[in-house]
């Protein structure tokens, strides 16, 4: 009985960090790491930046309310 318990604890000691690493860097937390290039500020884009153009080109309908961001 004690032998089984020691084996289980040893297994957990070994598997624990592996599981933690897998959760943080694998299918879980790693997917949401902030330093990935996809989160870089230059990866943001918005075609509404030219608000003065969107006020006009579509016959003044889109953007006519002034909701274009600046």
């Amino acid at each position: 009985m004690m032998r089984m318990l020691r084996a289980l604890l040893a297994g957990l000691r070994l598997a624990g960090p592996v599981l933690l690493f897998a959760v943080m860097c694998g299918c879980g937390g790693g997917r949401y790491m902030l330093d990935e290039p996809v989160n870089d500020p230059i990866m943001t884009v918005d075609d509404r930046q030219d608000d003065d153009l969107c006020n006009v080109e579509d016959a003044g309908v889109s953007g006519a309310s002034g909701e274009c961001p600046t």
């Binding site: 997917r31 949401y32 790491m33 902030l34 990935e36 996809v38 989160n39 309310s65 002034g66 909701e67």
Partner: peptide
């Protein structure tokens, strides 16, 4: 004129 907007923004660490 005036405009009222209500919205929600969801950001899961940029992903």
């Amino acid at each position: 004129g005036y405009m009222v907007t209500l919205g929600a923004h969801h950001d899961r660490s940029g992903w």
